[in-house]
Design a binder for these strands. Structure first.
Lengths: 251, 251
DNA sequence: AGAGCTTTGTGTCAATTTTACACTATGCCA
DNA sequence: TGGCATAGTGTAAAATTGACACAAAGCTCT
């Protein structure tokens, strides 16, 4: 993790930020890595926010998103995809958000457009990093999130929607699972992303037909029930498949 | 078309613009409304560009896109959807683009993030408007476009892709057709958007099953062959359908 | 050691959807 | 009136989907 010279001679652009919806999967449900801003001075308002920051004038948007991601998680080469740009002039209508910005921004009143990204990470790979701009970060189950700072809740909804769409077309879910996983875990992952129950046998049939899983000759250990076979994602077969293209991956 | 007071007391934001990919359909192929910037001083470089402009600090992104659209086409309430944000620092690497910006921008060297939209309009509804910042605008078949100013070609590709995806999920294509149209025209539209031939009978079966077309008891006139029945889009049935949701609209 | 608990893993059948494919009908034009 | 161009229509085979139930494996507790 060495410093590059990227930022030398470069300025923060006060008008454009990136925010990241970092999805994880705790083998039970879909979660998001959120910043806890700590006690809000004015006493009320949501404490949780998406990680994000202003961009530098010499980096492109993807780089900015990767930078935010790396600052928070120390992870690089993570699945990252743009959700879109958000920029209501009254984005910062909550008093608590105003106050917080004063503590971290040079121009807290500037009109900011934010470009949202979502990323998929393996929770196990994440190690908390020291952060100047937040008390700490935590994985929060998506289903429990009711409000967020700024327009972050809206961004989260759109990110979820985009993830839903995307997973029907490409098997990107593997970015959320450990290298070795069971079909039940994969099943559960799809259910929590699509937010609806999927028939077990039909799911297995469908996923197997894609032919992108390699069965390891290895079983789960130490579970108090019949151990499951472990699988891994087969990148090569997936690459083949993407060439021919596949639409029919709907559930 | 009356002036509002929107812009009073408001400033252009030198760092954020919107660009619009305005799709049309000439009953043969998909087209895009492009600005012809006229002779480029330095002699080379693409003349064509997407319509777009900087945003005002008091309008949101959708409003800005609608404004650009209205300035160019005098149309309002048009189908409009965000494609995403584009913002390479070296977005403006063509000399011809630099020179052009000098003629239209107060801060031609500023680093600009642009938010791209695509919109669908009925070509017949379009009447050219006088434009201060461009010689004129023209419908260009998508298939003929090989290069554009800035990163507009890349934006166009992504807009096409998004349109492709979207039309598989929602029948937004109707925004491109006249009120009365034939099934063959609709067929041709889908082929040109999806960029592949579709079986005539299968297409008709599938579209009919959606049950969002009303057959008018009216035939085409003056065509030198068997005249086709005319149809119109049935908004009500479509609304019903969107409630239940429909995934299966793949071709 | 055995009973009980929990989760894994598996097959079939009916209904629906998809794909491939060719000929007649209609109206204009020459 | 014959020729031309496009509209409009059906079927059969193959593939996909959806619904559904029970035996097998390993742990735990007694």
């Amino acid at each position: 993790m060495h410093h590059t010279n990227k930022k030398i001679g470069s300025e923060l652009n006060p008008n454009v930020s990136v925010d990241c919806v970092i999805f994880g999967f705790d083998l039970e449900q879909l979660t998001v890595l959120l910043i806890d801003r700590g006690e809000i001075p004015s006493g009320s308002g949501p404490r949780l926010a998406l990680p994000g920051n202003l961009i530098y004038d010499n980096e492109n948007l993807d780089q900015a998103a990767n930078r935010v991601l790396a600052e928070l998680t120390a992870l690089e080469n993570i699945y990252l995809e743009q959700v879109g740009a958000f920029g209501d002039p009254d984005r910062i209508h909550k008093e608590s958000d105003r106050e917080w910005l004063k503590t971290i921004r040079a121009e807290p009143e500037a009109r900011v457009i934010t470009v949202a990204y979502f990323s998929l990470v393996q929770m196990a790979h994440y190690q908390p990093q020291a952060l100047s701009f937040a008390k700490n970060a935590d994985w929060i189950p998506v289903s429990e999130i009711k409000e967020l700072a700024f327009d972050h809740f809206e961004i989260l909804q759109e990110a979820k929607e985009k993830l839903k769409q995307k997973i029907k077309i490409q098997p990107i879910g593997f970015n959320l699972l450990p290298e070795k996983f069971t079909l039940s875990q994969l099943h559960r992952l799809y259910e929590s992303i699509l937010d609806k129950p999927l028939d077990k046998r039909n799911f297995r049939r469908k996923i197997q037909k894609l032919d992108i899983l390699s069965s390891l000759r290895e079983k789960q250990k130490g579970v108090p029930h019949k151990p499951s076979l472990l699988y891994e994602f087969n990148e090569e077969k997936y690459q083949e498949l993407t060439q021919t293209g596949f639409d029919n991956f709907g559930f």
